[in-house]
């Protein structure tokens, strides 16, 4: 564990807490893409298949349970909670995310570290996480104005993988046989997808204006 990875995990945790706060405090999921939340649920379930077979540390196990639990809880809320689901606008959340699932799984079948059930699903989860934010970003562009909590949720979610890139650089220079090129390349793509959001977020913060993404 290094400071960059810990900062990344904490930033990821904060993004989840901000999202839970928004949904539970405002009893509304306006501006949140259910499809992105479903994709993240698939990402965590596919990545943490070793949850009960490989014990790394208490921290690792606890965080995995938090990530799986929170993503499934949000999906459940947006689908079945009688108050929250009313604020879900499926007319703006129209990204066909099943293509992302199919495409990433196909890619994982061809590009993986080892052709085993767990490694293919692990690579699949890494590729899928890189593009999972797309429905959310498209929705924000469609819905124009972004409420503060939703903006902060996306900001922290984008920042966490940026910290992981620093972690991979650090591990590359400090550990000899470190080679996580699947994570690195996907992590770079993932963070790059947030680039324009970060730009407009910074502009709105600088001008102390409401965050607006150009359609």
């Amino acid at each position: 564990m290094n400071i960059f990875r810990f900062a990344g995990d904490m930033t990821h945790l904060i993004s989840i807490l901000v999202l839970l706060l928004k949904v539970y405090a405002t009893k509304s999921c306006s501006g949140i893409s259910l499809k992105t939340q479903e994709l993240y649920g698939i990402v965590f379930l596919a990545r943490y298949l070793d949850l009960f077979t490989d014990f790394i540390s208490v921290y690792n196990t606890v965080m995995k349970l938090v990530f799986i639990g929170s993503s499934l809880a949000i999906v459940w809320c947006m689908r079945f909670h009688r108050v929250v689901k009313r604020s879900y606008d499926r007319d703006v959340d129209t990204f066909r995310h099943y293509f992302l699932v199919g495409g990433c799984f196909l890619l994982a079948l061809f590009v993986h570290e080892k052709f085993s059930f767990r490694e293919v699903f692990w690579a699949f989860s890494i590729y899928l996480e890189a593009v999972a934010i797309l429905p959310q970003l498209i929705l924000l562009q469609r819905s124009g104005n972004v409420d503060n909590l939703t903006g902060q949720y996306v900001l922290f979610l984008g920042a966490y993988r940026g910290f992981y890139i620093l972690n991979w650089i650090y591990r590359y220079f400090t550990e000899d046989q470190f080679s996580r090129w699947i994570s690195c390349v996907s992590g770079l793509v993932q963070t790059a997808l947030y680039a324009d959001f970060f730009y407009y977020y910074f502009i709105s913060w600088k001008n102390n204006a409401k965050l607006k993404l150009p359609a």
Partner: peptide, 10 residues
């Protein structure tokens, strides 16, 4: 063979 070490990152 290279034992794929358990992925220690989240």
């Amino acid at each position: 063979n290279v034992e794929t070490e358990a992925h220690d990152e989240l």
